[in-house]
Amino acid sequence: MHDIHEVATLTSKGQLTLPKPIRQVLGVDAGGKVAFDLRDGEVVVTRADAQHDDPAIGAFLRLLEADIRAGRHLRTLPEDLAHAMLANAGHGERLDQDIDGDVEL
């Protein structure tokens, strides 16, 4: 990761302009979205990708990150689950398709 130190000035409306080097590293341009997270007294700014807007996924990822930082390691996945995940990686789901077979709710 890049070591960059930039300063931005907060306006009376609470707005600021992200310095160009920060925008470039984050890969955001006009209309792009950034996320602000307060972690241990520091504000972390990241690019907000549309695919990660789900608050449950965000909460899970923050919990996972906290566990990793604290040195708590995950145990490995069951082998059959790992193989199933790898087999389906990169395959998009078509939610408009009919479901084959019976479905129980």
Rank of each mutant, 00 (worst) to 15 (best):
H5V: 14
V7E: 10
L10F: 13
T11I: 08
T11E: 04
S12Q: 14
K13V: 02
Q15R: 09
Q15P: 01
Q15L: 13
Q15N: 11
T17Y: 08
L18E: 02
P21F: 11
Q24E: 13
L26C: 02
V28E: 02
V28I: 12
G31T: 02
K33A: 13
K33D: 11
K33Q: 11
A35L: 09
A35D: 04
F36P: 02
D37N: 11
D37K: 08
L38N: 08
L38W: 04
D40T: 05
G41V: 09
G41D: 13
V43C: 11
V43F: 12
V44W: 09
T46S: 14
D49W: 14
D49Y: 15
Q51F: 03
H52K: 04
D54Y: 01
P55I: 01
P55A: 09
A56H: 04
A56Q: 06
G58E: 00
G58F: 00
F60K: 05
F60Y: 12
L61Y: 06
L61G: 01
L61F: 12
L61D: 12
R62T: 14
E65D: 15
D67A: 09
I68V: 14
R69P: 00
R69S: 10
A70N: 07
R72D: 00
H73N: 06
L74W: 10
T76A: 11
L77G: 02
D80K: 14
D80I: 05
H83Q: 12
L86M: 15
A87D: 14
A89R: 15
R94N: 15
